[in-house]
Design a protein around this nucleic acid. Sequence first.
DNA 1: CCTTATACCTCGAACTGAAAGGTATAAAGC
DNA 2: GCTTTATACCTTTCAGTTCGAGGTATAAGG
Lengths: 115, 115
Amino acid sequence: MATTNPSFMNGVPELLVLRLLRGREMYGYEIVQEIREETGEVVSLGEGVVYPVLHALERSGAITSDRRPVGGRSRIYYSLSPTGAARLIELTGLWSRITGAVQQVLVGGGRAGLV
Amino acid sequence: MATTNPSFMNGVPELLVLRLLRGREMYGYEIVQEIREETGEVVSLGEGVVYPVLHALERSGAITSDRRPVGGRSRIYYSLSPTGAARLIELTGLWSRITGAVQQVLVGGGRAGLV
DNA sequence: CCTTATACCTCGAACTGAAAGGTATAAAGC
DNA sequence: GCTTTATACCTTTCAGTTCGAGGTATAAGG
């Protein structure tokens, strides 16, 4: 089943967000910075990417939100739900298969019938 | 045109095509099938993706074409130019950095201050 | 005060890549 | 002889993502 439709390389922002939320609950602004930092700025998703992803994930039940005032300011903390954990596993596997496939071509040369 | 940000995850078709052409000259139809085969159908780029990529690469001087009749039918063989070889190196490095960065987040957990 | 940092948000533009369709020849099947 | 299948090229249209820019509001620092 060669997953065709959605542009085979997409959903990386979703994957990253889910993965970060696996460890602890976080709020949007924090996620934006965390991705930037942890990837050494190689991947830098803006708020215009992260917030919509968060909203879509919440709508689909993958994460839950909890609005909390912190020092006078208001933050929305998101946590991973079981659904989200499953989705994370799914996306991680997909990512792994795709990068593996690309790597296969990159190394290629004369694929010595491994598999 | 001001090269907007090309979505950090793009250009994989271009990368794959360039890589395949590194080994030998190939024609479009062949490239389509080769990608399908070599990735075990995980990545399956249609002709609607490959042909435009080939044309863009030729326009940019990364590859050259040579139309040849083979058994009554006409094929356009493409070869990598020095420019294309450089582009391949560039894209390979980019791909490597990006997948590395994503991996960094995926493994993450407690990045022990490496850098 | 006024700028900077935090923290949220949305919309429009841009770009990809997917699908589908279109042409033409050769070979194989009926 | 005719039709289907495989080869081989190509383009256009469409949908989905991501990006950038902009917009609101509070708190803190100069």
